[in-house]
């Protein structure tokens, strides 16, 4: 869905997306300490599996993106995690393309990272329902922003291929709902089992 194949985007869009992707990747790798490696790899695996599996939904078929969840758990380290997932999907399954790797990376990682940074202060162990509502909302919004980014990039590159807004909405809105439910569920689970994975350290310190 959000995997834009080779040969669709124009050179300026590709260059801008690749630069932004490299920037995000550098930011993420700089923050990747020894203790973060297993968690980053785990989320890369979750992203890789979840976004490789599509299911039929009405006239189209969708797959999870999990940008919101990845951003929530990893912050900027979502860039290296999603990069590895996207690279493997391109090489193994032919999703997307090598030249569009940077653009696809920004589309899927950036909305989740930024929205997660916004909602992270509101996640508290003692308020699980409210926290899940926030993370679910952020995940849904991340899907919508990813869809808008994809649409704008395609429209900028190839006006003839400009996605129809109606079709876009029909395809992405149910996905946004599903993604919100999955992320809210995972938030509830993690708050019970391993809160330090998603709660900001400062908030965690005051809550327990």
């Amino acid at each position: 869905m959000a995997h834009i194949p080779d040969g669709v985007l124009s050179l300026p869009v590709l260059a801008a997306g690749t630069l932004a992707g490299v920037g995000g990747l550098a930011l993420g790798i700089r923050r990747l300490t020894d203790r973060d490696i297993p968690r980053t790899a785990l989320l890369a695996a979750v992203f890789f599996i979840a976004s490789s599996q599509a299911f039929s939904l009405g006239p189209t078929s969708v797959h999870l993106l999990l940008g919101g969840l990845t951003g929530l758990v990893l912050g900027w380290k979502a860039f290296p995690a999603i990069f590895v997932g996207l690279l493997l999907q391109t090489l193994l399954f032919g999703f997307g393309g090598l030249t569009t790797l940077g653009v696809d990376l920004v589309n899927m990682a950036l909305p989740g990272v930024l929205l997660a940074a916004v909602v992270r202060p509101f996640i508290r162990v003692d308020r699980p329902a409210r926290s899940a509502a926030f993370t679910g909302g952020a995940a849904a919004l991340a899907v919508v922003i990813t869809a808008v980014l994809v649409g704008v990039e395609i429209a900028l590159s190839e006006p003839a291929f400009a996605p129809a807004l109606g079709v876009m909405a029909a395809a992405y809105l149910p996905l946004a709902g599903i993604e919100a439910a999955v992320t809210a569920f995972v938030t509830l689970y993690l708050l019970k089992v391993k809160p330090e994975m998603i709660v900001a350290p400062a908030v965690l310190g005051t809550a327990i």
Binding site: M1, L42, V46, Q53, A54, F55, F93, G94, F95
Partner: peptide, 15 residues
């Protein structure tokens, strides 16, 4: 995670 993989296994790729 393992349960999730098994759950979605029947689905296929999307392209």
């Amino acid at each position: 995670l393992a349960a999730f993989i098994l759950l979605v296994l029947p689905a296929e790729a999307h392209r």
